[in-house]
């Protein structure tokens, strides 16, 4: 067994430096790498270019990095929940590239899978396609979108083992599997690091080959963004 296990978040983030490009898993606040984000806040790494579907909320998730003005550029699909994000974007402090959610996923997957680019119908005829190569296939127009290039991918899983195998839970899965192996170094943090051999090989979502470093997060807040419930009859 090739071990990917590192002792803690400090070791997991070894090598991060200013001006790098990072991928962050998560949808809203669900399935975000909380511990890696907290460590980046502590390190104060600046000039970051971040690829993440969302930008957190003002006081949690990537919002924490925005607060510290650590991010120079965000590539996201939806950023509606963060006032500080909007302020920095409108004032020009923060460069923002908004791209379709499926395109974001597929540009990650392309990087993971060794495709330099993909053609997607999403965004054709809109400002998202401006300046991009387009091509017709079977009478329909498509836009050429390039695979992402990133230095680190920070992902979060439910369970994992020292071999780097990952199992996700619920919709906390989202972009996390697509970002594994899509950057030079993939750092996976898990809620529970279980002994090798206890995960059923049939049930593994991401094989350890896509993961470079794995550690068990110290704590998870797992904040709920929109708590919606129904009444019992």
């Amino acid at each position: 067994m090739i071990s990917k296990k590192v002792a803690n978040v400090q070791e997991a983030l070894e090598g991060v430096s200013d001006n790098m490009t990072f991928m962050f898993g998560g949808f809203g606040l669900s399935g975000i790498p909380e511990n890696s984000i907290a460590e980046l806040v502590r390190l104060g790494t600046k000039g970051l270019k971040c690829i993440s579907n969302n930008a957190g909320v003002d006081d949690f998730g990537l919002g924490l990095l925005l607060q510290g003005k650590q991010i120079d550029k965000m590539t996201s699909s939806y950023v509606g929940e963060n006032d500080e994000f909007e302020r920095q974007m409108l004032s020009g402090e923060l460069e923002v590239e908004l791209i379709p959610q499926g395109t974001l996923a597929e540009r990650c997957r392309a990087a993971q899978a060794g495709f330099p680019a993909i053609y997607t119908p999403a965004g054709y005829g809109t400002e998202v396609a401006e300046g991009k190569e387009t091509r017709e296939f079977d009478g329909k127009m498509y836009v050429l979108e390039y695979a992402f290039k990133a230095d680190f991918a920070f992902v979060k899983a439910w369970k994992g083992d020292a071999a780097g195998n990952l199992v996700f839970k619920g919709t906390a899965r989202n972009f996390n599997p697509n970002m594994c192996g899509a950057a030079k170094i993939t750092v996976a943090e898990v809620e529970e690091l279980v002994p090798v051999g206890t995960l059923d090989p049939n049930q593994i979502h991401i094989p350890g080959i896509f993961v470079k470093r794995i550690f068990q997060g110290e704590k998870y807040e797992k904040r709920i963004e929109q708590r919606t419930v129904r009444q019992r009859d």
Partner: peptide, 24 residues
Amino acid sequence: DADIINAGKQTITTLPGASFFDSA
């Protein structure tokens, strides 16, 4: 459950026969 939400980030439930999958 913070791990089970919809695209509006609202907490939801799943019905028998449901499945979870990645964004791609």
